[in-house]
Design a binder for these strands. Structure first.
Lengths: 170, 170, 170, 170
DNA sequence: TTTT
DNA sequence: TTTT
């Protein structure tokens, strides 16, 4: 119905980039968003919000953001659940980013971001047949710098496989 | 830093109203927000988003919303964690509503909402001293229709006490 | 960089649907959004916010909304300017809706909205070549019920032609 | 009803700080927000969005932001109108910022922002009596560096006086 | 499992 | 009347 989230915060770690079996990029990261007011103990707390982003912007995130980077997210809240390792249902609430903006100033901490200090997600729904051109649909991507390398199965060795093509937001 | 959420959806159950030991009202509810696009199986899925609201708007929510009510929420994402029953940490991501709007039409399903079909939350940060006048700070509220009744301890019998005054957003 | 708007309010008039010379639908409407608090005179004021929506959702707006309809808008603020009738520059600030939701209850005021009480905008970027199928790109659309009829030039007789294909948000 | 705006962009000029006759601070500034996609000519356009902020955050804006500063705004769209110099009604659509965040890195361009690289607006609705303590209600503020100085009437010499205490959002 |  |  309506579901909109806007966040600005800092990555708590380097983003994690993976690929679904059919070759779609997906990056996950956690944003620390400092709260506006201090608590009763006078401390400034933060919320740690898990984010997911798909396709081209996933690769941008992996290439341009790292632990500590200031980033903006425009997206929506998603809930999902899966069978946990112990057989019980695990409930997840996270933010699916439709666009991510790099808010670090130019030539800061070794970035390399062209495009006027920002980049944006691909359109939430893809243009035509082969999304993101180049037939990268069913083959392994070959530029593997900057993210968790995967060989055949991007999720191999990942005990908790809870992201699949079914989670694609489009 | 920046943390803003806007939702429109329907309550999955009647809201749950409780009071902290010091007498502050807090309502929780879950909103089902239908997704914009159908999935690959052609089904329209929904996200089920847990919301919390404090003080006067908590009481409004309890009085005016029920299972199935269409409502709008303007707030922020909050994360917190507590020691689970089994001793392990439980992580929670939820929405703290700063204002809640009743979107059901006038004289729909037994509402009774005055104020031009809407009501709003109290200001996000409280003035000082005695919020919401009337010295309801340290005594039990006595209008108990429409919400989970509490006797002495609002959380009595609630095995999982993970909301306290410390969670007050101001 | 980041530009996000979410509104819920009521149409002040029936929406206005037109077509650009190349056949792209564009609807405009104004939303009255009641303010949260009364002013010093105790009156509840409203903001009257002009909105524009393109393509399929424009036609949905024309078909499903009318004066007084409760609607939600998710979009962004756009500013533009044009040469006024008196030769001076006119500045416009409006909301470009990416999706519009019909918030009126089912079978209310003669709607006819299927799809679980809501509809959404088309994807911000179009699927393939011919957007919205049917080759309506360069010909007049022929379902003219429910909106301002246009014959050859959709803006004919409209002294102030300030919307063209150049204003297309994608 | 619901009216929420989140922006990130750069100030097109130094902010303008004034005071109402009763001594309430109000700052105005314009944010250039680059659009996400280039237009058909391949240029990246921007929206220029006028913002208003009241009270303490107005003074923070005047003290910490200047032309070119990167800032985030969380607020709402407001429309108002006034009698123009030529006797005809002028319609204004602007953003009332409830909080403003300074997104420039620490020790950037001569800032001086403490508070962990950000500051926020005062609560949207004021406690009571004397807002922001210190009896600054009916007297001229005396720290006049960094903003348009005013002597007796903060709007003196301002041909277009269209902001008064009546425009206070609370 | 948390960022500046 | 526009910013990097």
């Amino acid at each position: 119905m309506m579901n909109r989230v806007v966040l600005v915060g800092r990555l708590t770690k380097d983003p994690d980039l993976r690929y679904t079996p059919s070759g779609v990029a997906v990056a996950t990261f956690s944003l620390a968003v400092n709260r506006q007011f201090s608590n009763q103990q006078g401390e400034r707390e933060a919320d740690f919000i898990n984010c997911v982003v798909w396709r081209k912007p996933a690769e941008n995130v992996a290439n341009f953001l790292k632990k500590g980077s200031l980033a903006g997210v425009d997206g929506r809240i998603q809930t999902r659940n899966y069978e946990g390792q112990d057989g019980k249902r695990v409930y997840v609430t996270e933010v699916v980013a439709e666009s991510v903006q790099f808010l670090e100033p130019r030539n800061a901490s070794g970035g390399g971001n062209r495009n006027d200090n920002e980049f944006y997600g691909a359109p939430p729904r893809e243009p035509q047949g082969n999304p993101y051109g180049g037939g990268n649909q069913n083959q392994r991507p070959n530029n593997n710098q900057g993210f968790t390398r995967v060989d055949d199965d991007p999720f191999a060795g990942n005990g908790q496989i809870d992201i699949s093509d079914d989670d694609l937001p489009f």
